[in-house]
């Protein structure tokens, strides 16, 4: 039988939905028993929230010091140690999971299966390679499977009605070679890009940081999160956490509206799972139209104000 340990992601006050998505993926393995591991300096509050995720039996709550819960080197060793009795160790394929999980895999002497997009059975999974240009089926024949779960491929489950046991743990010797200094967080007034139902996204076609305001206004009008292409981030029109794509965020909103984005393969891989993709571009031959469900060719500087009026 599969025993699955999932590394929970949180921001100190709430459990990140990517954790629940990893639980959803784990539940697709027949007869799996699922536990969580969560780290924090003040772990009790967050462990209580983790225990509410439906389908989880036990929450391993590990107390850390000096904000070590934010650091891969601070949490990987204990995660590896506590995974002794598990067949699988999962983490979310977010920057948090991507940072920590390969360390856990190395400590356990395993290769990691990155970005699982589909569970075939307890040891067989599908994952994308080459920016999503190909999908491979990977099978592990080893005693332990370490993997990250592609959040756009699995649904958020019930995060409120669970009642898992909480088991407390501590770290004997805290690492001191890596130190958390600060986090410059993005805008938190708009919905979170990774979980939003609607996303308004802008590219190089916006032309400047001032013009990018159009995207925020339109997003606020319909209650959407905002995203961007790499070109828009590189040009300084908007902050890095808005980048969508192969090396940015992989998202699956119900509605993705892109403005002045050409549709490079590296961008498209980030939106392939979106419900409806709308493309607005002045170039009728832009590759974005190959994946768009609804396309409108024209100048975004005319179209956006008209949309503001009519939506």
């Amino acid at each position: 039988m599969s025993k699955i340990l999932i590394l929970a992601q949180h921001d100190g006050s709430s459990i990140n939905q990517s954790t629940s998505k990893a639980v959803t993926a784990a539940q697709q393995i027949q007869g799996a028993s699922i536990d969580l591991i969560v780290f924090a300096d003040d772990v009790n509050t967050i462990a209580a929230k983790a225990s509410k995720l439906a389908g989880v039996n036990t929450v391993h709550a590990v107390t850390t010091s000096n904000e070590n819960w934010k650091l891969a080197q601070g949490i990987a060793p204990k995660t590896a140690e506590l995974s002794a009795n598990y067949s699988h160790v999962f983490g979310p394929s977010t920057t948090f999971g991507k940072d920590v999980m390969p360390c856990v895999a190395a400590l356990l002497g395993q290769n990691q299966i990155s970005d699982i997009m589909q569970v075939i059975d307890a040891t067989t999974f599908k994952r994308p390679i080459y920016a999503g240009n190909a999908v491979i089926t990977v099978k592990s024949n080893h005693d332990k499977i370490v993997a990250t779960i592609r959040t756009a491929s699995f649904k958020t489950g019930d995060m409120t009605s669970g009642s898992a046991n909480i088991e407390n743990h501590s770290i004997e010797k805290a690492q001191t070679d890596t130190k958390f200094i600060s986090l410059q967080a993005g805008n938190s007034e708009r919905p979170d890009l990774q979980t939003a139902a609607k996303v308004i996204s802008g590219g190089r076609g916006l032309g400047s940081e001032e013009n990018f305001e159009l995207m925020y206004k339109l997003a606020d009008k319909i209650g959407a999160a905002t995203g961007a292409s790499r070109a828009a981030v590189d040009a300084g029109y908007c902050p890095n956490e808005m980048q969508v794509g192969q090396t940015g965020k992989i998202i699956a909103p119900d509605l993705y509206m892109s403005f002045g984005i050409s549709g490079a393969i590296q961008h498209l891989t980030g939106i392939k799972d979106a419900g409806t993709i709308v493309a607005i571009n002045k170039d009728a031959d832009a590759p974005i139209y190959e994946v768009a469900d609804i396309g409108l060719v024209g100048d975004l500087f005319k179209i956006v104000p008209e949309l503001m009026e009519k939506l």
Binding site: N111, I113, T124, P128, G132, N133, A134, V135, I136, T137, V138, K139, S140, N141, K272, I277, Y289, V291, A292, D293, I294, G295, L296, V297
Partner: peptide, 18 residues
């Protein structure tokens, strides 16, 4: 890890132009 198969990704359905 064994790579058992490679396949092309599922294409999206053709959209409409307005």
């Amino acid at each position: 890890l064994n790579i058992e198969n490679y396949e092309s990704p599922q294409p999206r359905q053709k959209g409409v132009m307005v």
